[in-house]
Design a protein around this nucleic acid. Structure first.
Length: 369
DNA sequence: CTTACCGGGATCTGCCATGGGC
DNA sequence: GCCCATGGCAGATCCCGGTAAG
């Protein structure tokens, strides 16, 4: 008979425990039952509809909110509008994070001020809330936010770093202070144990290079560091060097993903006649090879090979893989048309900005004519 | 003057699970 | 028993240009 294992193979039910499965089935079969919605606050429902909020989405995300008797949606709307948000933005914000309507005026004022201590103007903040309402509204603890900002500053992160952190990974600031501290201390410990000279700086370095790190679990980051050390046969010094360099960029990947990609790179290069040592060197030189999806990476490699470039040239200059498949393809075609010789001239021409590439091509064609 | 090397900039949420509080 | 706050997870690049080196 079909047990939980069977049901979890259905995409929507993936990752569900037996208990939550039962709840889901009950919800599913009773979702059209009037009893389920009878407790909802009709006045609130009306109000939200008028504001253009997607009620279905609210019901799916945070059904409890619709049963509340006291909410502050009107206050929220006027607050966000006073900061420059459009009606339809506010509606979308509430639809995606319904709990936002439970935040009080004082909360909103205080939180806004704290965010403003990092951002230059209101519109920057609106842009981020629009992108990720949850990041702004999820925590009700403004004191914690204040402490986080102070803490991150105390690490020596510049205001520019802070700005980038809050812009790109706004969730960082809704983490509990303790969680952020845990990650920082974890990173500092790693730096120490690898014999880093500027021990206090190691965590700071990683964070400013990879602003996503603080929204990952230490478990994940640790697993990735261990994996890299193991699979690349690195001693402490080499590992430290890697992590301080471009290795930091791949630390936040999911463990399985990074492993899968490593395996794929290994197989691909093996197929092309490379030694294990070459593969290892390649990854150390270009850790981003583990970041891109294996399909994408293989497409780029194939494309370069078909264009008359050797695998050794790629291993020497992996940066050419930074560019998109389309870009690489286009440039190879252009270069072929003018008879560019990679053997003589190398492949650096592929690793430059659009403007520089065009200048180069113009020059080559004018010489030809 | 051209090329090579290198670092940096943009961008990145929406969902589920869980434990504690009420 | 429900709701809240919060932790955690999967997902998966591309490009530019300063400047040192030649």
């Amino acid at each position: 008979m079909a047990g939980p294992a069977f049901f979890t193979r259905i995409p929507i039910l993936k990752n569900c425990s037996t208990a939550s499965l039962i709840i889901r089935f009950v919800r599913f079969f009773t979702s059209n039952c009037p009893d389920d919605t009878v407790k909802e606050n009709n006045f609130l429902l009306q109000n939200l509809s008028t504001l253009g909020v997607d009620i279905k989405m609210v019901r799916r995300r945070q059904p409890g909110i619709l049963r509340k008797q006291i909410t502050n949606e009107n206050g929220l709307v006027s607050f966000l509008k006073s900061k420059g948000a459009e009606d339809k933005t506010v509606a979308s914000i509430i639809s995606r994070y319904p709990r936002s309507i439970t935040r009080s005026h004082d909360y909103l004022e205080k939180r806004w001020l704290l965010w403003r201590s990092v951002f230059k103007n209101d519109s920057e903040i609106i842009k981020i809330i629009k992108r990720s309402p949850e990041s702004f509204f999820r925590s009700s603890d403004n004191n914690n936010l204040e402490k986080n900002i102070a803490y991150l500053c105390s690490l020596g992160l510049t205001s520019k770093d802070l700005h980038r952190l809050l812009t790109t990974a706004p969730r960082t600031f809704s983490n509990s202070l303790e969680l952020n501290q845990q990650m920082v201390e974890f990173l500092q410990d790693i730096g120490c144990s690898l014999g880093g000279k500027h021990k206090e700086n190691f965590a700071k370095q990683i964070i400013s290079k990879n602003v996503y790190i603080l929204i990952r679990s230490t478990k994940r980051v640790k697993a990735n560091i261990d994996f890299l050390q193991d699979v690349l046969h690195l001693n402490n010094e080499e590992l430290l060097h890697l992590l301080q360099g471009s290795g930091s960029e791949i630390l936040d990947l999911s463990n399985e993903y990074i492993k899968r990609n490593f395996k794929s790179v290994e197989e691909k290069l093996d197929l092309l006649g490379c030694t294990n040592e070459q593969t290892t060197k390649f990854i150390i030189k270009y850790p981003l090879a583990l970041y891109v999806s294996s399909g994408n990476l293989n497409n780029k490699i194939n494309c370069l090979l078909e264009g008359g470039i050797t695998i050794n040239q790629i291993l020497e200059k992996p940066k050419v893989l930074d560019f998109s498949f389309e870009n690489i393809k286009g440039r190879l075609k252009t270069l072929e048309e003018i008879g560019y010789n990679f053997k003589e001239n190398g492949i650096s021409v592929l690793d430059c900005s659009r403007t520089r590439f065009e200048v180069k091509i113009n020059k080559l064609t004018s010489i030809k004519n």
